[in-house]
Computed example of a mutant assay.
Amino acid sequence: MPTILGQNQYGKAENRVVKITRDGATHHIKDLNVSVALSGDMDEVHYSGSNANVLPTDTTKNTVFAFAKEHGIESAEQFGIHLARHFVTSQEPIKTARIRIEEYAWERIEASDANSQFIGADEVKHSFVRKGQETRLTQITYDGSSWEVVSGLKDLVVMNSTNSEFWGYVKDKYTTLQEAYDRILATQVAARWRFNWTDDEQKMPNWEKSYEQVKKHMLQAFAETYSLSLQQTLYQMGSRVINNRGEIDEIRFSLPNKHHFLVDLEPFGLKNDNEVYYAADRPYGLIEATILRDGCEPRIPVDLTNL
């Protein structure tokens, strides 16, 4: 039975581009997931395999990153308009360009009043927490005489757009990673903390206040730590909680390193001065550790998914 080609399109989906605009010490983030779909005179590539009218999908990916540098990202809408216009007007076979964009919003982490005398106001203008934020968790165990309360959160996404380095690590013949002296540090925090309350109703913590304070101390430690490793940042986050919240004896973190790699724009004649990044989702480094009050024994499971 004869067949004919119907509606079709092609392109590069889910290009994760992060644009950092540096206004002195104040940084602004645009974090987009851009999908490009192109259609037009594409019959022959389907019928005979001729690529004469095909703009490679890799080229559409490169265009997204190059435009982030050349045009900036004023808004998702404006960025999409620039891209769509470019593809249709620069390639005669392309008749229609569809640009779909998801934007991930970030808001700034506030500095702690206690540390304001040690850090300048400008120094926290590079620390962000993803809007939408976290899922709150708790597990209650009761054996008829005493209680164990372990609370926590997951999916709290945070980012420092500077004040992070990674260098001086072990190198062998398989090492290709370049040392970094100014990098994005981002992670998706999963944390559990164990209360030392057991059964005294009069000494029961204010659970709502405790949760908000734990989260505040974690975020402030993340923002205020000049990081030489994600492990160092993790330890500072846990120590800040233990030192400021007497009702908590133990906190465990699982921190995936949400890698952001500088895009090589030199093939397009553009210099990438720590502005345009590719946000990789996998594989990723996974940093995990427990921070304890001195003298306490760990009781939170190593695998937080089993809590």
Rank of each mutant, 00 (worst) to 15 (best):
I81K: 08
V88W: 06
H86T: 06
H86D: 11
S35E: 03
L55Q: 03
H86Y: 15
T96S: 12
K61G: 12
K61L: 12
H82N: 14
L55E: 03
N33Y: 08
A68E: 09
I73K: 02
L38I: 07
E77P: 01
K69D: 14
T59K: 02
G49K: 07
T59F: 10
V88M: 05
V64E: 04
V36M: 15
E70T: 13
A52H: 04
M42Q: 12
A37E: 13
T57L: 11
T59P: 01
S48A: 14
E77W: 04
D31Y: 10
Y47E: 14
M42K: 05
A66M: 07
V88P: 07
S48K: 10
S50V: 06
N33Q: 14
F87L: 09
V45N: 00
R85A: 15
T57V: 14
L38V: 10
H82M: 01
E74R: 13
N33H: 11
A37Q: 12
V64S: 08
D41H: 10
H82I: 02
I94E: 08
R85T: 15
T57G: 09
I81A: 02
H82P: 00
A84D: 03
D41S: 12
Q91M: 14
N62W: 00
N51A: 01
R85I: 12
A66W: 07
N51C: 00
D43A: 11
L55P: 00
D41Y: 04
I94S: 05
T57K: 00
E92W: 07
G40C: 10
V45K: 01
S75M: 09
G72V: 04
V34T: 11
H82S: 13
S90I: 05
D31T: 06
N51W: 02
L32F: 08
F79Q: 09
T59L: 06
D41E: 14
V36P: 11
S90T: 15
S50Q: 07
K69Q: 15
D43L: 13
T63R: 08
S75G: 05
S35N: 03
H46I: 03
E70W: 06
V64T: 02
S39W: 07
E77C: 01
I73E: 02
A76L: 08
E92C: 08
K69S: 14
Q78N: 14
V64R: 08
G72T: 02
L55D: 03
